[in-house]
Design a protein around this nucleic acid. Structure first.
Lengths: 222, 222
DNA sequence: ATAAAGCCTAAACAAACGTTTGATTAACAG
DNA sequence: CTGTTAATCAAACGTTTGTTTAGGCTTTAT
């Protein structure tokens, strides 16, 4: 018989490899790359423990896969948004503020839309760049290099007062400022400073972009 | 006999509790709060494994102790430097740049002087604020609150264009920018961007301070 | 239908972990 | 000295870890 085996193939039923990836991404973002055990992850994904070895070879392989997937997703979105800005400007330099937005928006958007409101997925980025256990896989290093090259190119035109290495470091600092939103646990929740009911993503975004833009536009140390 | 028991009490021979703390601080800064095992740490400290339980109750207790020790050290230095600036200004508002220096210098100085050049001790701060496993102990939360209050007070006078919550968030971003120096592993080493022989701490410090100052002085979103 | 490949699973593996124990040694007070 | 407390130690405890095994099930191709 044909129909008996699987009743339906609705979106709920992904293959084990995918389900692991999704569960692992959430677990790593929440608790770091070290703490979640494969038993935790596979239980959440509702797959067998051995599937991790089958699909990713080892736990480290799974960590790499999660990082690669997220990094590509973010960096593709960054370059797309930058290209859009560049074509809109039609040859003229793009405002620094807009370039900064291209760097941070893909991350903030994803965090904003994350249903648990905590920006777990955004915090994954923070961890993937800060955790000692996350050795940057070569595959994703190349993607970052390309992104860096593109933004360096754009800022060379939009912030001509800066030296080359200053552009690099100030972008670097800007990313650090953004990561801080995610890596400080329960700061987006109420009771921090003001009694804001829920994290006001748009306000924070404005604040971040203005801060980073101000930092980049600050005068050179030449 | 009296003299036979201990030949000398030179600085090399600290008590086990201290030696654990020192070894653990280095290990946690290098590899995060999760990875180093108590066997690694006690071996490096040249003490018995059970000493951790004896002095700190548990592994979590040791993590807390390391964080508390470092956080107090840094925050005391920050407030001291701020007080010095305030008294030098003699009632007038202190330049934003100087306030920023008070926040970052205690960390940068310690990293600079760290013999292995990698700023491991500075990276400990980054981890203590980013790692999911490092729940901020209450004892150190109070210290941070005091530091925050003092710097908020100073910036209210030196950056009067900002709302209260803007001051908070921009300081927050500034710390994130600083942390980035430490949490990106081998970026301070050569082969990154320029072929600088060794990390030029003074240049990086200037760059960081200028970036953060520019971010804080950027116009309000009011 | 039969074979082959891909996918999934329960069970077991050895290794490493944090913690506890009980005994031994050092420090010190009366 | 004697007695008491603090500090250190080797050894073992019970869990939990990532990984492997061997086999069953499903799908695809011949």
């Amino acid at each position: 018989m044909i129909m008996t085996s699987k009743i339906e193939n609705q979106p709920k039923k992904l293959k084990a490899g995918e389900r692991i990836l999704i569960a692992a991404e959430l677990a790593f973002a929440k608790d770091g790359f070290e703490r979640p055990s494969l038993r935790d992850i596979t239980a959440a994904a509702d797959v067998n423990l051995a599937s991790v070895s089958y699909y990713y070879g080892s736990r480290d392989g799974l960590v790499d896969a999660v990082i690669i997937r997220a990094a590509k997703r973010w960096n593709v979105a960054r370059i797309q948004q930058l290209d859009r800005c560049l074509s809109e400007a039609g040859g003229a330099p793009v405002a620094v503020e807009k370039i900064v937005a291209c760097v941070v928006d893909p991350i903030l958007d994803e965090a904003k839309e994350s249903e648990d409101g905590g920006g777990y997925l955004g915090s994954l980025l923070g961890r993937s760049m800060t955790d000692p256990s996350s050795r940057m896989p070569d595959e994703v290093g190349a993607v970052y290099a390309e992104v860096m090259r593109r933004f360096d190119e754009a800022l060379t035109r939009s912030a001509p007062h800066l030296e080359r290495r200053e552009i690099f470091w100030r972008l670097f600092f800007g990313v650090g400022a953004m990561l801080r939103i995610f890596t400080q646990g329960d700061l987006l929740n109420p009771a921090s400073g003001g009694r804001s009911g829920e994290p006001d993503w748009e306000w924070i975004r404005c604040q971040l972009i203005r801060f980073v833009t101000g930092g980049i536009e600050a005068k050179s140390t030449k």
